[in-house]
Simulated scan of single mutants.
Amino acid sequence: MFASLLGGCGADQQPAAKAAKASEASVPVVVVNAQRKTVPLSVEGIGAVEAIASVAVKSRIDGQIVKVAFADGDELKPGQVLFEIDRRPALAQLRQAEAKLASEMALLAKARTQDARYQDLLRQRFISADGYQQYKTNLDSALANAAAARATVDSARLQLDYCTIRAPITGRAGRIMIQQGNLVKANDGNPLVLINQLQPIFVNFSVPEQYLAQVRGAGAGLVKVVASDADGKAVEASGTLAFVDNAVDPASGTVKLRASVANRDLGLWPGQFVHAQLALGERADALVVPADAVQTGPKGSYVFVVDAERKAQLRYLVVERTVGAEALIAEGLAAGETVVVDGQSRLLPGSPVAIRDAAGKS
């Protein structure tokens, strides 16, 4: 009896051992079902931020800076005073020009009086037409001299106005390149300060030429801009497509685009590198799987599909494009099939699998 009991125990343990062995041979994986849904279509590119307007402020006259009315990095408004140049030389020129104008106006008044008198004598035939012509010429000359003097006054007033340098646009000031007390020259090669307009702002990026027709069809499409801050976190902004270049770059096979972004929170800065994503519309009834499920091998893209017997089967497929974290499948997969998204590295065709959730529970 003892022997038979031992034999019975061994018979009972054999299936359990086989089941345990089979369980140990199974590869734990996380799966999802391929599904059809409407997905947004977009194209991405690496881009750079550019100020929508950038002005290098220069002096239009020679002189000494007597006042700097702003600080490095200030937000500026159009017409705001930036620099004051010594006004005394320009003011002296204006007074001289005004005195010359007064003199010419006096001569003009005299010439008009003489012209009126000799016109009357000409009508009474006390002088000849040739005799009157001299006074008519004097009047014309006085009129021309007065006009020239008036233009000199206007020029002097303009020079005086140039002594005050104002901000031409709304924007943020850069570093002040010249300080109070220094001499400046008209149209010097070095600017006094550089002003960049930051709101709105441009984002320039490029996309492959095969998307050109879709890009043109998108019109003023929505553009999502993603930058990274110092902590590596994503800084997102959105804008609209403002410009499509009129030619494809033959060297890179790309077309240049430009987006206009409101940049209300000043999250984007000129010269900053960003990722830009242009919305091209939607694809209805697209077959999608997580992009992490798709692997690349010598024969192209593939996934592991779990069949009814819970065995992994290798399936080659054609990926149309990747949209965010999802891959759009053009061929090789059907809706509802179970696809492995985690654990593929330990699978071989025909490997038994143990399905678990993302938290690791079977």
Score class of each variant (00 low, 15 high):
Y118D: 03
N138R: 15
A167M: 09
T113H: 11
Q180F: 01
L139Y: 10
A129W: 10
R123E: 12
A151E: 06
I178T: 09
G131L: 14
L139R: 13
I201F: 06
C163I: 03
A156D: 04
I169F: 05
R157P: 05
D130C: 02
A129N: 13
P168Y: 12
Q180A: 15
R123I: 11
A147D: 14
Q159T: 11
Y132K: 15
A142E: 00
R166Y: 13
Y118F: 11
N190G: 00
G131S: 14
V153F: 05
D161Q: 15
I169S: 08
L198P: 03
A151K: 10
R117F: 11
L198S: 09
I169H: 09
I169C: 09
Q197G: 08
N145A: 15
Y135L: 11
L160S: 08
T164Q: 08
P191C: 08
S155N: 13
L198H: 06
R125F: 03
R117S: 07
L183P: 00
A147E: 15
S141A: 15
I165Q: 01
A151T: 08
L194P: 02
G174M: 05
Y135I: 10
I176D: 00
I178R: 13
Y135D: 01
D188N: 10
G181A: 03
N196F: 08
D154I: 12
I201L: 01
Y162C: 05
Q119C: 05
R166L: 14
